[in-house]
């Protein structure tokens, strides 16, 4: 119960942080970190796959409602939530797979970063192509996705660093 409460607060906290502050950064006019997906990335593997999917969809839809981009974030985040357990199997530790919570400590820094980079890139590509809903201006959309992905990964890296600084 304690764990559920903690993740519930994290869900709301990251959502508000995203829509009220991070969405207004607009570095160079269009680059925002999409930090809210950090919630999906660090869900423990003990969480049922269907529940992970549902959480991903709800989180995306909430961000969509605030951004007015109905469906785009939901699409990308559902994809992320579906792929997450598979990549966790690849990059996570071999032993006690059933209970691991992704982080620098449990995965190891290199593996966690690889895991983050791949998933964030997939999410950003899915989001920006869902938003554009066309392949015209392909490179412009690609550039946007790459810039935002780098920014997002940077934010996740800093947060993970701070977590173990103490």
């Amino acid at each position: 119960m304690n764990g559920a409460l903690k993740y519930g607060l994290l869900f709301i906290g990251l959502l508000l942080l995203q829509v009220l502050i991070l969405n207004n950064i607009l570095f160079l006019g269009f680059i925002n970190p999409y930090l809210y997906i950090y919630f999906i990335l660090i869900l423990p593997s003990s969480v049922n796959k269907d529940i992970t999917l549902l959480l991903g969809f709800c989180l995306g839809l909430m961000v969509d409602i605030f951004c007015g981009s109905i469906g785009c974030h939901a699409f990308a985040t559902t994809l992320l939530a579906y792929l997450k357990p598979h990549f966790q199997k690849v990059f996570g530790p071999r032993e006690d797979y059933e209970t691991v919570t992704p982080s620098f400590r449990t995965f190891g820094m290199k593996e966690f970063l690889q895991y983050t980079i791949i998933l964030v890139f997939i999410h950003q590509l899915a989001y920006f192509f869902a938003e554009a809903f066309t392949f015209t201006g392909f490179f412009q959309t690609l550039l946007k996705a790459i810039c935002c992905a780098i920014f997002t990964i940077l934010f996740i890296y800093i947060i993970e660093k701070l977590k173990y600084k103490r």
Binding site: D64, I70, A130
Partner: peptide, 30 residues
């Protein structure tokens, strides 16, 4: 899980395609 995933993705795509209809739904807009 795969079917649930596909269902949610199709739901999102339907929302993107019918953007204008969903804009009219108050609780989904700002």
């Amino acid at each position: 899980t795969l079917f649930f995933f596909l269902f949610l993705e199709i739901l999102s795509l339907v929302m993107i395609v019918n953007y204008n209809q969903f804009q009219r739904v108050h609780f989904l807009s700002s």
